[in-house]
Design a protein around this nucleic acid. Structure first.
Lengths: 111, 111
DNA sequence: CCAGTTTACCTCGCAAGGCGATGGGGGCAA
DNA sequence: TTGCCCCCATCGCCTTGCGAGGTAAACTGG
C-alpha cells in the first residue's frame, strides 16, 4: 500500500472502528491486519500519535483497564463529538474519492 | 477538501489527465478546477514539484512550445513507462479505497 | 501610454502524516 | 534464563501539500 495515499486516512479508519465499541491499540493493529487479510499493517508510529491527537481533540476518550493477568491495557472509546466528526469525515472521504475517480475512472469493486 | 487526504493522489491524477493528451501546467490547474466545479484547486506548489518528479522518473516528458503570441508553454506528455505506472497506481488506488471502505462502509456515489 | 489583470513558469519554508528504529516492561513457555 | 509475544510509546527522517513569494510577458481598459 502506498504510504502517501494512506496519509490522512488514519483518523476516519480509527473512528470507524471505534463505532463497534472500545478497543485498545494493539487490538486495533491486529484487527486491521486481519480484516485486510494481512495487506495493511497499521504501524505503531502512525497509530499512537493519531489516537492521542483524537483524544486531545476530545473525539475519543481513554481509560486503563487491568486484566486478570494484572496487566494494563489502554482502551479508547468514541465520544459524541467523535461520532459527529466521523460523519463529517465520511462526507469528505466521499467527496475525495468521487473527485479522484472523476479523473481516473471508477475503481473496480475488487482490487 | 482535506489537505492530508489529498496527499499521494496528485501523481495518479496527473497521469490520468495526460492520457487525454499533452497538457501544460496552467491548463492542468484550470482543467481540474472546471471538472470539479471549482471544488478542487490544484495548487502550483503541489503541481510543479509533482510534474518534475514524474519527469525525473521518466513517466512523462516535457517540451517547450511557442505560441502565436510568441509566449512559451511547457507541455507534458505521457511516456510508455508512465502508462504502466498509471496502471499500477490505479490498482493501488483501488486497493486503498476498498480497504478504507471496508472499515468506513461504502461511500455514497454522490458526496 | 500606463496600471491592472491574466497567463505562465517556478521555488522556498512550514506543517503534518506515516515509517523505521528504538525503548521499556510484563507474562509465559521451553 | 532466554526468547517470544503482548502492549505502550516516542523520535528523527522523508515526503507531501500549501501559502507566499518571485519573474516575466501579453492583454485590457482608461
Amino acid at each position: 500500500m502506498d504510504r502517501e495515499l494512506l496519509k490522512g486516512s488514519t483518523p476516519i479508519l480509527l473512528l470507524s472502528l471505534l463505532t463497534e465499541g472500545p478497543m485498545y491499540g494493539y487490538q486495533i493493529i491486529e484487527t486491521v491486519l486481519q480484516r485486510t487479510n494481512g495487506s495493511y499493517t497499521l504501524k505503531e508510529g502512525a497509530l499512537y500519535p493519531a489516537l492521542h491527537k483524537l483524544e486531545a481533540a476530545e473525539f475519543i476518550s481513554s481509560y486503563w483497564q487491568t486484566q486478570a493477568n494484572g496487566r494494563d491495557r489502554r482502551y479508547y472509546s468514541l465520544l459524541p463529538a467523535g461520532t459527529a466528526f466521523l460523519e463529517a469525515k465520511k462526507k469528505e472521504w466521499s467527496l475525495f474519492v468521487n473527485m479522484v475517480e472523476g479523473f481516473v475512472g471508477p475503481a473496480g469493486s475488487k482490487g
